[in-house]
Design a protein around this nucleic acid. Sequence first.
DNA 1: CTGCTTAGATTGACTGGTCAGTCAGCCGGG
DNA 2: CCCGGCTGACTGACCAGTCAATCTAAGCAG
Lengths: 211, 211
Amino acid sequence: MAKAPPVDKRRQILDAAIHVFARQGFHASRVSDIADEAGVAYGLVYHYFESKDEVLNELFTERWSLLLGAIEEVDGQPIGAREKLDTVARFIVDSYRHEPDLMKVIIVEVTRAANSFGRTHLPEIRRAYDMIAKIVADAQQAGTFRKDVDPEFASMWFYGAIEQLLSGWVFELIPGGEADFDRAREMVVETICGGLDAPATPRTRTASGSS
Amino acid sequence: MAKAPPVDKRRQILDAAIHVFARQGFHASRVSDIADEAGVAYGLVYHYFESKDEVLNELFTERWSLLLGAIEEVDGQPIGAREKLDTVARFIVDSYRHEPDLMKVIIVEVTRAANSFGRTHLPEIRRAYDMIAKIVADAQQAGTFRKDVDPEFASMWFYGAIEQLLSGWVFELIPGGEADFDRAREMVVETICGGLDAPATPRTRTASGSS
DNA sequence: CTGCTTAGATTGACTGGTCAGTCAGCCGGG
DNA sequence: CCCGGCTGACTGACCAGTCAATCTAAGCAG
Protein backbone atom coordinates (compact mmCIF):
# COMPACT_ATOMS: atom_id res chain seq x y z
CA MET A 1 0.00 0.00 0.00
CA ALA A 2 1.89 3.01 -1.22
CA LYS A 3 0.48 6.28 0.03
CA ALA A 4 -2.50 7.91 -1.48
CA PRO A 5 -2.62 10.57 -4.20
CA PRO A 6 -3.90 14.04 -3.23
CA VAL A 7 -7.49 13.08 -3.93
CA ASP A 8 -8.52 9.98 -2.05
CA LYS A 9 -10.71 8.26 -4.60
CA ARG A 10 -11.53 5.52 -2.17
CA ARG A 11 -13.03 8.03 0.22
CA GLN A 12 -14.77 9.73 -2.66
CA ILE A 13 -16.43 6.45 -3.56
CA LEU A 14 -17.52 5.80 0.01
CA ASP A 15 -19.00 9.28 0.35
CA ALA A 16 -20.80 8.91 -2.94
CA ALA A 17 -22.15 5.56 -1.83
CA ILE A 18 -23.59 7.11 1.32
CA HIS A 19 -25.66 9.51 -0.68
CA VAL A 20 -26.67 7.07 -3.36
CA PHE A 21 -27.69 4.39 -0.85
CA ALA A 22 -29.56 6.96 1.22
CA ARG A 23 -31.41 8.23 -1.80
CA GLN A 24 -32.31 5.00 -3.55
CA GLY A 25 -31.75 2.24 -1.04
CA PHE A 26 -29.01 -0.36 -1.35
CA HIS A 27 -30.82 -2.74 -3.66
CA ALA A 28 -32.01 -0.09 -6.07
CA SER A 29 -28.55 1.46 -6.26
CA ARG A 30 -26.41 0.45 -9.20
CA VAL A 31 -22.70 0.36 -8.93
CA SER A 32 -22.68 2.73 -11.86
CA ASP A 33 -24.73 5.20 -9.82
CA ILE A 34 -22.04 5.22 -7.17
CA ALA A 35 -19.28 5.64 -9.73
CA ASP A 36 -21.16 8.48 -11.43
CA GLU A 37 -21.85 10.27 -8.17
CA ALA A 38 -18.19 9.92 -7.19
CA GLY A 39 -17.08 11.09 -10.62
CA VAL A 40 -14.92 8.04 -11.22
CA ALA A 41 -14.98 5.19 -13.68
CA TYR A 42 -17.13 2.17 -13.04
CA GLY A 43 -14.19 -0.16 -12.74
CA LEU A 44 -12.50 1.88 -10.06
CA VAL A 45 -15.09 0.84 -7.54
CA TYR A 46 -13.84 -2.70 -8.04
CA HIS A 47 -10.28 -1.55 -7.74
CA TYR A 48 -10.92 -0.45 -4.18
CA PHE A 49 -13.70 -2.80 -3.13
CA GLU A 50 -14.35 -6.43 -3.76
CA SER A 51 -18.04 -6.02 -4.30
CA LYS A 52 -20.98 -3.72 -3.89
CA ASP A 53 -21.66 -5.40 -0.57
CA GLU A 54 -18.22 -4.57 0.67
CA VAL A 55 -18.88 -0.88 0.17
CA LEU A 56 -21.89 -0.99 2.46
CA ASN A 57 -19.92 -3.20 4.79
CA GLU A 58 -17.23 -0.62 5.11
CA LEU A 59 -19.68 2.20 5.75
CA PHE A 60 -21.37 0.27 8.50
CA THR A 61 -18.25 -0.99 10.20
CA GLU A 62 -16.60 2.42 10.19
CA ARG A 63 -19.45 4.02 12.05
CA TRP A 64 -20.57 1.17 14.23
CA SER A 65 -17.14 0.71 15.74
CA LEU A 66 -17.29 4.36 16.78
CA LEU A 67 -20.56 3.67 18.53
CA LEU A 68 -19.18 0.60 20.26
CA GLY A 69 -16.14 2.61 21.33
CA ALA A 70 -18.33 5.37 22.68
CA ILE A 71 -20.46 2.99 24.74
CA GLU A 72 -17.42 1.21 26.07
CA GLU A 73 -15.82 4.46 27.09
CA VAL A 74 -18.87 5.83 28.82
CA ASP A 75 -19.38 2.59 30.65
CA GLY A 76 -15.98 2.97 32.29
CA GLN A 77 -16.78 6.40 33.62
CA PRO A 78 -17.78 6.89 37.27
CA ILE A 79 -21.15 8.42 36.53
CA GLY A 80 -24.77 7.40 37.02
CA ALA A 81 -26.60 5.05 34.71
CA ARG A 82 -28.92 7.75 33.55
CA GLU A 83 -26.00 9.90 32.44
CA LYS A 84 -24.40 6.91 30.77
CA LEU A 85 -27.52 6.17 28.81
CA ASP A 86 -27.93 9.82 28.02
CA THR A 87 -24.44 9.90 26.59
CA VAL A 88 -25.13 6.87 24.45
CA ALA A 89 -28.34 8.42 23.21
CA ARG A 90 -26.54 11.67 22.53
CA PHE A 91 -23.90 9.90 20.50
CA ILE A 92 -26.52 8.27 18.31
CA VAL A 93 -28.62 11.38 17.90
CA ASP A 94 -25.57 13.52 17.15
CA SER A 95 -24.40 11.01 14.59
CA TYR A 96 -27.69 11.51 12.86
CA ARG A 97 -27.54 15.25 13.24
CA HIS A 98 -24.15 15.47 11.57
CA GLU A 99 -24.43 12.70 9.01
CA PRO A 100 -28.08 11.95 8.46
CA ASP A 101 -27.51 10.12 5.21
CA LEU A 102 -24.95 7.78 6.69
CA MET A 103 -27.14 7.00 9.68
CA LYS A 104 -30.09 6.47 7.42
CA VAL A 105 -28.14 3.92 5.44
CA ILE A 106 -26.88 2.14 8.53
CA ILE A 107 -30.30 1.91 10.11
CA VAL A 108 -32.33 1.14 7.04
CA GLU A 109 -29.91 -1.17 5.27
CA VAL A 110 -28.11 -2.89 8.11
CA THR A 111 -29.47 -2.50 11.61
CA ARG A 112 -33.09 -2.95 10.60
CA ALA A 113 -32.35 -5.35 7.80
CA ALA A 114 -31.01 -8.13 9.94
CA ASN A 115 -32.62 -10.60 7.59
CA SER A 116 -30.55 -9.74 4.56
CA PHE A 117 -27.47 -7.67 4.90
CA GLY A 118 -27.52 -7.12 8.63
CA ARG A 119 -27.28 -10.83 9.29
CA THR A 120 -23.55 -10.64 8.69
CA HIS A 121 -23.25 -7.96 11.31
CA LEU A 122 -25.50 -9.40 13.96
CA PRO A 123 -22.57 -10.06 16.31
CA GLU A 124 -21.47 -6.43 16.23
CA ILE A 125 -25.02 -5.17 16.56
CA ARG A 126 -25.58 -7.52 19.41
CA ARG A 127 -22.50 -6.24 21.12
CA ALA A 128 -24.07 -2.81 21.39
CA TYR A 129 -27.19 -4.26 22.96
CA ASP A 130 -25.12 -6.26 25.39
CA MET A 131 -23.15 -3.26 26.52
CA ILE A 132 -26.29 -1.27 27.13
CA ALA A 133 -27.69 -4.20 29.05
CA LYS A 134 -24.57 -4.18 31.18
CA ILE A 135 -25.08 -0.54 32.06
CA VAL A 136 -28.61 -1.34 33.18
CA ALA A 137 -27.52 -4.42 35.10
CA ASP A 138 -24.85 -2.46 36.95
CA ALA A 139 -27.37 0.18 37.90
CA GLN A 140 -29.64 -2.53 39.26
CA GLN A 141 -26.78 -3.91 41.27
CA ALA A 142 -26.09 -0.44 42.62
CA GLY A 143 -29.73 -0.06 43.52
CA THR A 144 -30.51 2.90 41.29
CA PHE A 145 -32.63 0.86 38.88
CA ARG A 146 -35.40 -1.49 39.89
CA LYS A 147 -34.31 -5.09 39.80
CA ASP A 148 -37.44 -6.71 38.42
CA VAL A 149 -36.72 -5.72 34.84
CA ASP A 150 -34.55 -7.85 32.61
CA PRO A 151 -31.50 -5.82 31.58
CA GLU A 152 -31.40 -7.53 28.19
CA PHE A 153 -34.99 -6.54 27.54
CA ALA A 154 -34.52 -3.02 28.80
CA SER A 155 -31.56 -2.67 26.49
CA MET A 156 -33.70 -3.70 23.54
CA TRP A 157 -36.38 -1.19 24.12
CA PHE A 158 -34.01 1.61 25.01
CA TYR A 159 -32.17 1.12 21.76
CA GLY A 160 -35.37 0.42 19.86
CA ALA A 161 -36.96 3.62 21.09
CA ILE A 162 -34.02 5.70 19.93
CA GLU A 163 -33.76 3.98 16.60
CA GLN A 164 -37.45 4.48 16.01
CA LEU A 165 -36.89 8.15 16.71
CA LEU A 166 -34.24 8.32 13.99
CA SER A 167 -36.56 6.38 11.72
CA GLY A 168 -39.26 8.93 12.36
CA TRP A 169 -36.89 11.71 11.37
CA VAL A 170 -35.62 9.88 8.33
CA PHE A 171 -39.12 9.39 6.99
CA GLU A 172 -40.43 12.69 8.24
CA LEU A 173 -43.01 11.18 10.53
CA ILE A 174 -42.07 13.49 13.36
CA PRO A 175 -40.66 17.01 13.33
CA GLY A 176 -36.90 16.97 12.91
CA GLY A 177 -35.82 20.55 13.39
CA GLU A 178 -32.51 21.31 15.05
CA ALA A 179 -34.24 21.91 18.38
CA ASP A 180 -36.06 18.59 18.28
CA PHE A 181 -32.95 16.46 18.41
CA ASP A 182 -31.83 17.28 21.92
CA ARG A 183 -35.33 17.64 23.21
CA ALA A 184 -36.31 14.20 21.95
CA ARG A 185 -33.17 12.67 23.38
CA GLU A 186 -33.76 14.21 26.77
CA MET A 187 -37.35 13.07 26.80
CA VAL A 188 -36.69 9.51 25.80
CA VAL A 189 -33.90 9.07 28.31
CA GLU A 190 -35.87 10.70 31.06
CA THR A 191 -38.98 8.67 30.35
CA ILE A 192 -37.29 5.31 30.13
CA CYS A 193 -34.93 5.92 33.02
CA GLY A 194 -37.88 7.28 34.96
CA GLY A 195 -39.61 3.99 34.36
CA LEU A 196 -36.52 2.06 35.33
CA ASP A 197 -35.73 4.01 38.49
CA ALA A 198 -35.94 2.12 41.72
CA PRO A 199 -39.20 3.10 43.42
CA ALA A 200 -38.81 5.46 46.35
CA THR A 201 -35.19 4.89 47.12
CA PRO A 202 -34.03 6.55 50.28
CA ARG A 203 -30.46 6.87 49.11
CA THR A 204 -28.59 9.88 47.83
CA ARG A 205 -30.35 11.42 44.89
CA THR A 206 -28.94 10.07 41.69
CA ALA A 207 -30.57 12.55 39.42
CA SER A 208 -28.66 15.78 39.28
CA GLY A 209 -30.98 18.70 38.78
CA SER A 210 -30.34 19.59 35.20
CA SER A 211 -32.80 22.42 34.87
CA MET B 1 -60.29 -38.59 -6.07
CA ALA B 2 -61.42 -35.50 -7.74
CA LYS B 3 -62.91 -34.12 -4.55
CA ALA B 4 -64.04 -30.57 -4.80
CA PRO B 5 -63.10 -29.03 -1.52
CA PRO B 6 -62.47 -25.54 -2.74
CA VAL B 7 -58.77 -25.71 -2.12
CA ASP B 8 -58.06 -22.05 -2.01
CA LYS B 9 -54.91 -21.82 -4.07
CA ARG B 10 -54.75 -18.12 -3.52
CA ARG B 11 -54.55 -18.67 0.20
CA GLN B 12 -52.07 -21.47 -0.37
CA ILE B 13 -49.83 -19.09 -2.26
CA LEU B 14 -50.07 -16.43 0.42
CA ASP B 15 -49.21 -18.91 3.15
CA ALA B 16 -46.29 -20.23 1.16
CA ALA B 17 -45.09 -16.68 0.60
CA ILE B 18 -45.10 -16.04 4.34
CA HIS B 19 -42.71 -18.87 4.93
CA VAL B 20 -40.52 -18.23 1.93
CA PHE B 21 -40.23 -14.52 2.69
CA ALA B 22 -39.53 -15.24 6.34
CA ARG B 23 -36.85 -17.75 5.48
CA GLN B 24 -35.04 -15.94 2.68
CA GLY B 25 -36.18 -12.36 2.82
CA PHE B 26 -38.34 -10.74 0.19
CA HIS B 27 -35.54 -9.80 -2.14
CA ALA B 28 -33.83 -13.15 -2.14
CA SER B 29 -37.11 -14.98 -2.70
CA ARG B 30 -37.85 -16.06 -6.25
CA VAL B 31 -41.41 -16.27 -7.41
CA SER B 32 -40.60 -19.86 -8.30
CA ASP B 33 -39.73 -20.51 -4.64
CA ILE B 34 -43.19 -19.39 -3.63
CA ALA B 35 -44.83 -21.49 -6.31
CA ASP B 36 -42.79 -24.54 -5.32
CA GLU B 37 -43.55 -24.12 -1.63
CA ALA B 38 -47.24 -23.74 -2.43
CA GLY B 39 -47.13 -26.74 -4.74
CA VAL B 40 -48.55 -24.83 -7.68
CA ALA B 41 -47.27 -23.82 -11.08
CA TYR B 42 -45.19 -20.71 -11.51
CA GLY B 43 -47.78 -18.99 -13.63
CA LEU B 44 -50.56 -19.40 -11.11
CA VAL B 45 -48.98 -16.85 -8.86
CA TYR B 46 -49.58 -14.34 -11.64
CA HIS B 47 -53.11 -15.54 -12.06
CA TYR B 48 -53.94 -14.42 -8.54
CA PHE B 49 -51.50 -11.56 -8.07
CA GLU B 50 -50.27 -8.85 -10.33
CA SER B 51 -46.71 -9.07 -9.19
CA LYS B 52 -44.41 -10.38 -6.52
CA ASP B 53 -44.79 -7.04 -4.75
CA GLU B 54 -48.53 -7.46 -4.61
CA VAL B 55 -48.15 -10.69 -2.69
CA LEU B 56 -46.20 -8.96 0.06
CA ASN B 57 -48.63 -6.10 -0.17
CA GLU B 58 -51.52 -8.36 0.55
CA LEU B 59 -49.79 -10.01 3.49
CA PHE B 60 -49.02 -6.68 5.06
CA THR B 61 -52.39 -5.07 4.48
CA GLU B 62 -54.29 -8.06 5.79
CA ARG B 63 -52.54 -7.98 9.13
CA TRP B 64 -51.95 -4.29 9.53
CA SER B 65 -55.62 -3.49 9.16
CA LEU B 66 -56.29 -5.85 12.05
CA LEU B 67 -53.82 -3.90 14.14
CA LEU B 68 -55.38 -0.59 13.19
CA GLY B 69 -58.79 -1.98 14.04
CA ALA B 70 -57.57 -3.21 17.38
CA ILE B 71 -56.08 0.14 18.31
CA GLU B 72 -59.16 2.00 17.22
CA GLU B 73 -61.40 -0.25 19.24
CA VAL B 74 -59.35 -0.04 22.40
CA ASP B 75 -59.17 3.71 22.11
CA GLY B 76 -62.94 3.92 22.34
CA GLN B 77 -63.08 1.95 25.55
CA PRO B 78 -63.53 3.72 28.90
CA ILE B 79 -60.30 2.47 30.43
CA GLY B 80 -57.02 4.02 31.50
CA ALA B 81 -54.22 4.86 29.11
CA ARG B 82 -51.98 2.25 30.62
CA GLU B 83 -54.53 -0.46 29.94
CA LYS B 84 -55.05 0.84 26.43
CA LEU B 85 -51.37 0.71 25.68
CA ASP B 86 -51.13 -2.68 27.30
CA THR B 87 -53.85 -3.97 25.04
CA VAL B 88 -52.10 -2.62 21.98
CA ALA B 89 -48.84 -4.20 23.09
CA ARG B 90 -50.64 -7.46 23.77
CA PHE B 91 -52.15 -7.47 20.32
CA ILE B 92 -48.76 -7.06 18.71
CA VAL B 93 -47.02 -9.59 20.92
CA ASP B 94 -49.80 -12.12 20.47
CA SER B 95 -49.67 -11.65 16.72
CA TYR B 96 -46.07 -12.65 16.91
CA ARG B 97 -46.77 -15.51 19.24
CA HIS B 98 -49.32 -17.03 16.90
CA GLU B 99 -47.80 -16.18 13.54
CA PRO B 100 -44.14 -15.46 14.03
CA ASP B 101 -43.27 -15.85 10.36
CA LEU B 102 -45.91 -13.42 9.23
CA MET B 103 -44.88 -10.84 11.81
CA LYS B 104 -41.28 -11.30 10.90
CA VAL B 105 -42.07 -10.57 7.28
CA ILE B 106 -44.16 -7.53 8.13
CA ILE B 107 -41.55 -6.04 10.41
CA VAL B 108 -38.47 -6.90 8.44
CA GLU B 109 -39.79 -6.27 4.96
CA VAL B 110 -42.31 -3.49 5.44
CA THR B 111 -42.36 -1.68 8.74
CA ARG B 112 -38.60 -1.45 9.04
CA ALA B 113 -37.99 -1.14 5.34
CA ALA B 114 -39.67 2.17 4.85
CA ASN B 115 -37.05 3.04 2.30
CA SER B 116 -37.98 0.40 -0.21
CA PHE B 117 -41.20 -1.46 0.11
CA GLY B 118 -42.55 0.22 3.20
CA ARG B 119 -42.60 3.59 1.50
CA THR B 120 -45.86 2.62 -0.17
CA HIS B 121 -47.38 1.87 3.18
CA LEU B 122 -46.09 4.82 5.14
CA PRO B 123 -49.59 6.32 5.45
CA GLU B 124 -50.99 3.17 7.06
CA ILE B 125 -47.97 2.75 9.28
CA ARG B 126 -48.21 6.35 10.28
CA ARG B 127 -51.84 5.91 11.16
CA ALA B 128 -50.87 3.45 13.87
CA TYR B 129 -48.37 5.87 15.33
CA ASP B 130 -50.94 8.64 15.25
CA MET B 131 -53.52 6.59 17.09
CA ILE B 132 -51.05 5.67 19.79
CA ALA B 133 -50.09 9.33 20.06
CA LYS B 134 -53.75 10.15 20.53
CA ILE B 135 -54.03 7.73 23.45
CA VAL B 136 -51.05 9.45 25.08
CA ALA B 137 -52.40 12.91 24.37
CA ASP B 138 -55.76 12.05 25.89
CA ALA B 139 -54.08 10.73 29.01
CA GLN B 140 -52.15 13.96 29.29
CA GLN B 141 -55.37 15.89 28.97
CA ALA B 142 -56.88 13.75 31.69
CA GLY B 143 -53.90 14.38 33.90
CA THR B 144 -52.70 10.79 34.19
CA PHE B 145 -49.63 11.34 32.00
CA ARG B 146 -47.17 14.15 32.41
CA LYS B 147 -47.71 16.91 29.90
CA ASP B 148 -44.12 17.82 29.08
CA VAL B 149 -43.62 14.89 26.73
CA ASP B 150 -44.58 15.13 23.09
CA PRO B 151 -47.29 12.53 22.38
CA GLU B 152 -45.95 12.00 18.86
CA PHE B 153 -42.52 11.24 20.22
CA ALA B 154 -43.81 9.02 22.99
CA SER B 155 -45.76 7.08 20.41
CA MET B 156 -42.61 6.51 18.40
CA TRP B 157 -40.63 5.09 21.23
CA PHE B 158 -43.45 3.04 22.61
CA TYR B 159 -43.94 1.38 19.27
CA GLY B 160 -40.21 1.26 18.62
CA ALA B 161 -39.55 -0.47 21.90
CA ILE B 162 -42.10 -3.18 21.17
CA GLU B 163 -40.95 -3.69 17.63
CA GLN B 164 -37.38 -4.00 18.79
CA LEU B 165 -38.55 -6.66 21.18
CA LEU B 166 -40.04 -8.65 18.32
CA SER B 167 -36.86 -8.06 16.37
CA GLY B 168 -34.90 -9.47 19.24
CA TRP B 169 -37.05 -12.57 19.22
CA VAL B 170 -36.92 -12.95 15.49
CA PHE B 171 -33.14 -12.90 15.47
CA GLU B 172 -32.77 -14.73 18.72
CA LEU B 173 -31.03 -11.91 20.50
CA ILE B 174 -33.17 -12.31 23.58
CA PRO B 175 -34.89 -15.35 25.04
CA GLY B 176 -38.22 -15.99 23.36
CA GLY B 177 -39.82 -18.77 25.33
CA GLU B 178 -43.56 -18.84 25.83
CA ALA B 179 -43.22 -17.24 29.25
CA ASP B 180 -41.12 -14.38 27.95
CA PHE B 181 -43.78 -12.93 25.72
CA ASP B 182 -46.18 -11.75 28.38
CA ARG B 183 -43.46 -10.90 30.80
CA ALA B 184 -41.69 -8.70 28.28
CA ARG B 185 -44.92 -7.00 27.33
CA GLU B 186 -45.77 -6.28 30.94
CA MET B 187 -42.34 -4.91 31.61
CA VAL B 188 -42.18 -2.64 28.62
CA VAL B 189 -45.62 -1.20 29.24
CA GLU B 190 -44.96 -0.74 32.90
CA THR B 191 -41.59 0.87 32.33
CA ILE B 192 -42.69 3.29 29.66
CA CYS B 193 -45.98 4.15 31.32
CA GLY B 194 -44.10 4.49 34.58
CA GLY B 195 -41.89 7.03 32.88
CA LEU B 196 -44.90 8.80 31.41
CA ASP B 197 -46.98 8.91 34.56
CA ALA B 198 -47.75 12.30 35.97
CA PRO B 199 -45.49 12.90 38.99
CA ALA B 200 -48.55 12.94 41.21
CA THR B 201 -47.41 9.62 42.63
CA PRO B 202 -44.20 9.96 44.60
CA ARG B 203 -42.11 7.76 42.38
CA THR B 204 -39.11 9.72 41.18
CA ARG B 205 -39.48 13.28 42.14
CA THR B 206 -37.54 15.93 40.34
CA ALA B 207 -38.17 18.35 43.12
CA SER B 208 -37.75 21.36 40.89
CA GLY B 209 -41.18 22.80 41.39
CA SER B 210 -40.79 25.85 39.28
CA SER B 211 -44.11 27.63 39.13
C1' DC C 1 -76.50 -40.63 -18.89
C1' DT C 2 -73.58 -38.71 -22.64
C1' DG C 3 -71.49 -35.60 -25.61
C1' DC C 4 -70.68 -30.74 -26.60
C1' DT C 5 -69.45 -26.02 -25.13
C1' DT C 6 -67.30 -22.69 -22.57
C1' DA C 7 -65.03 -20.18 -18.95
C1' DG C 8 -61.96 -20.17 -15.68
C1' DA C 9 -58.04 -22.48 -13.46
C1' DT C 10 -53.59 -24.21 -14.19
C1' DT C 11 -49.26 -25.14 -16.47
C1' DG C 12 -44.23 -24.12 -17.45
C1' DA C 13 -41.16 -22.85 -21.33
C1' DC C 14 -39.65 -18.69 -22.91
C1' DT C 15 -38.35 -13.61 -23.35
C1' DG C 16 -36.53 -9.25 -22.39
C1' DG C 17 -34.16 -6.44 -19.51
C1' DT C 18 -31.09 -5.61 -15.83
C1' DC C 19 -26.69 -5.46 -13.51
C1' DA C 20 -22.67 -7.18 -10.86
C1' DG C 21 -18.42 -8.14 -11.87
C1' DT C 22 -14.36 -8.80 -15.52
C1' DC C 23 -10.60 -7.52 -18.25
C1' DA C 24 -7.69 -5.75 -21.79
C1' DG C 25 -5.65 -1.89 -22.20
C1' DC C 26 -4.78 3.38 -21.48
C1' DC C 27 -2.34 7.23 -19.20
C1' DG C 28 1.01 10.03 -16.48
C1' DG C 29 4.62 10.39 -13.22
C1' DG C 30 8.94 8.58 -11.71
C1' DC D 1 9.63 2.40 -20.23
C1' DC D 2 7.42 0.64 -16.36
C1' DC D 3 3.89 0.43 -12.88
C1' DG D 4 -0.20 1.19 -10.57
C1' DG D 5 -4.13 4.04 -10.61
C1' DC D 6 -7.65 4.26 -13.71
C1' DT D 7 -11.06 3.41 -17.70
C1' DG D 8 -15.54 1.65 -19.62
C1' DA D 9 -17.26 -1.74 -23.02
C1' DC D 10 -18.55 -6.25 -22.53
C1' DT D 11 -20.39 -10.78 -20.66
C1' DG D 12 -22.72 -14.14 -18.15
C1' DA D 13 -26.19 -15.06 -14.88
C1' DC D 14 -30.29 -14.29 -13.09
C1' DC D 15 -35.32 -13.69 -12.78
C1' DA D 16 -39.85 -11.13 -13.03
C1' DG D 17 -43.34 -11.36 -15.84
C1' DT D 18 -45.79 -13.27 -20.40
C1' DC D 19 -48.56 -16.33 -22.94
C1' DA D 20 -50.17 -20.08 -25.68
C1' DA D 21 -51.58 -24.38 -24.57
C1' DT D 22 -53.93 -27.74 -21.58
C1' DC D 23 -56.97 -29.22 -18.11
C1' DT D 24 -61.31 -29.31 -15.23
C1' DA D 25 -65.82 -28.58 -14.03
C1' DA D 26 -70.25 -26.91 -14.77
C1' DG D 27 -74.18 -26.17 -17.67
C1' DC D 28 -77.21 -27.91 -20.99
C1' DA D 29 -79.36 -30.22 -24.87
C1' DG D 30 -80.39 -34.63 -26.85
